[in-house]
Amino acid sequence: MLDTEPDPNRFPVTGLILAGGEGRRMGGVDKGWVTWRDKPLIAWAIERLRPQVAQLLVSANRSLDRYRALGYPVVSDPPEWRFAGPLAGIAAGLAAAPSDWVVTVPCDAPLLPRDLVARFLAAAHAAGAFAAADDADRAGDPLPPVFFAHDGTRPHPVFLLVHRAHLPSLAAFLATHRRRIDAWYGTLPHRAVSFADEPDAFANCNDPESLAQLAATVR
């Protein structure tokens, strides 16, 4: 392995699939079980993310037995933040993750990058984030940046690489009743990771129209 590459054995990553929303734009259905190309969206997310991570968690607040039957641990929003948006799921995932680093993805992006974690780890390595995390463990400061995906045109803040040392700041942010992911990590050190060469990988299916459009355009 090149010296410029992070060692995945030293820096294992937990994958967290966010499937805990109310699905309002999808008519209130549990979005993870909406079918795209004869397979539920949650299955597409697992297929893409599972080979990239050491462990996998699913964030869900409904259909819990159905999600558990997929064979991965399921975490739910804390009662005080139930259905408070993706940040509540991220908080639950950070609290439950067996590793220090967690990659988050939404359940409604069936084409998510197959090299998502590799690129995040490379960016974190280049930024010295692993050393910063070690320093934070010893001294409490500084914390490593939060890394988010950018397709060359716009950010995709649900796609994150985050260290669980940021859980206290996330809990404090949620306590203010704010919910925007980028507003939270905007208060912290953060870095964009470019995926400009594969922008279509972030196409999502958060309403029936986008689901139909993706089905029509992707061959």
Results as ranks from 00 to 15, higher is better:
L188H: 14
G186A: 11
A183P: 02
W33M: 09
S210M: 11
T35G: 07
N61E: 10
A92K: 00
D38Y: 02
A92V: 01
S63D: 11
P12V: 13
D200F: 10
P144I: 13
A127Y: 10
P168D: 15
T217I: 06
R180T: 12
V29I: 04
D134Y: 00
V146S: 07
P144N: 15
V102D: 01
W36M: 08
D100Q: 14
A95K: 01
L211V: 11
G20H: 00
A54F: 09
S169L: 10
I181W: 07
L87H: 02
D134Q: 10
R180C: 10
L94G: 03
L2K: 10
G71Q: 08
V218Q: 02
P142V: 15
A92N: 02
A139V: 07
F173R: 07
R10K: 15
R180N: 13
A172C: 13
L94W: 07
L167H: 09
G23V: 03
A136F: 09
T187W: 10
A201H: 01
E80I: 14
L111F: 06
I90Y: 05
L111Q: 10
F130A: 12
L161T: 08
H163E: 14
Q213K: 11
L188V: 07
W81L: 08
D141F: 14
G85H: 07
A88W: 00
V75F: 05
D135L: 11
A19D: 00
A172Y: 09
P113S: 00
P106G: 02
D200Y: 10
A131I: 06
N204R: 00
A212H: 13
A43W: 03
F159N: 08
L167C: 09
S210H: 09
N9A: 12
L167D: 01
Y185L: 14
A212K: 08
Y185D: 13
P6L: 08
V75A: 04
D30P: 05
A88Q: 06
L211E: 06
P6C: 08
R25Y: 11
V158A: 12
G89D: 01
A43H: 11
V103N: 03
G27C: 03
